[in-house]
Design a binder for these strands. Structure first.
Lengths: 153, 153
DNA sequence: GTCGCTGCAAACAGTTTGCATGTAC
DNA sequence: GTACATGCAAACTGTTTGCAGCGAC
């Protein structure tokens, strides 16, 4: 945990930025909620517990900054809210989402199932992939089970 | 063209909706710009040429309606703007995007490269896929060629 | 006359920006 | 003292909503 903060601090400093108390608090929230896909507002509320005086704009600016230096990934699931994820590996980041259109739940697959596709893209399209995003919409197993009994939307 | 309008008209009517002049003008704009991924504002501007009195809210409502009955697909490339595409096939719609992080160009692949993955998802995750979205970020062949000479961002 | 559809303006949500103040070196 | 960072409020952007009026049946 501390070592990961240290690493992020170095990444910031190498680009000429500081790890201020507000930025550190924000990073800690991201580290503590690594499994979630927090929105800026989520992060803000959680950071407020550590640093009550922080402003929403600072959180936005911090997330934007961290996104620029590739410490976090800014994502978008189509609900009009940006979500932020720590990148676990700065070179490649591959996870996929299973989004249930019925209950809205989201499951994450960490496996990388697309390496062969990327090779094909480079060969056939001369397109050199640096990242990708793959989301599946569908019905999750729980909703599937429930809809056998009754159909609720 | 006329037959496709007719088909959309029937899809609307089967759900109890009418193809009003405003809705027809909107659909025509979508048909005429099928290759693009128009935002609501784009559509609005183009529709205004055909029907100057149309309101922005009507365009939004029409696009939302068409999306509900699966005539168009509402998409999101992460730039905070919803984009709308006519679905060419109402049952499955699979296209992927190659987004160049250098020049911002976007190429579309129509092939469906993911059927085997979807089968795997159903088996391993009991997740029943109705749609998916796959975007690749990377360097397109033009930028690749240019960056051999000089690096411009 | 009912009911869906429209245009307009106002409201809304998420995000960004301007600016005066604060802080580290 | 310089340069970056912050908090606050105001501004902005894309989208949605309330409502009075309109039009087809």
């Amino acid at each position: 945990m501390e070592s990961r903060i240290e690493s992020i601090k170095e990444q910031l400093q190498s680009k000429g930025y500081k790890l201020t108390p507000q930025r550190e608090a924000t990073v800690r929230v991201l580290l503590e909620n690594e499994e979630d896909h927090l929105s800026a507002e989520d992060v803000f509320m959680l950071v407020k517990e550590k640093a009550p005086d922080i402003g929403l704009a600072t959180v936005y600016r911090t997330l934007e900054l961290l996104s620029e230096i590739s410490v976090v990934e800014k994502m978008n699931f189509g609900d009009g809210v940006a979500r932020y994820d720590l990148r676990t590996d700065s070179s490649k980041h591959h996870h996929h989402h299973l989004i249930c259109v019925q209950c809205g739940s989201m499951e994450e697959i960490k496996d990388d199932w697309l390496l062969s596709l990327e090779e094909r893209l480079e060969k056939e399209f001369q397109f050199f992939v640096s990242d990708h995003r793959l989301d599946f919409q569908g019905i999750c197993r729980h909703c599937r089970k429930n809809s056998d009994e009754s159909v609720s939307h």
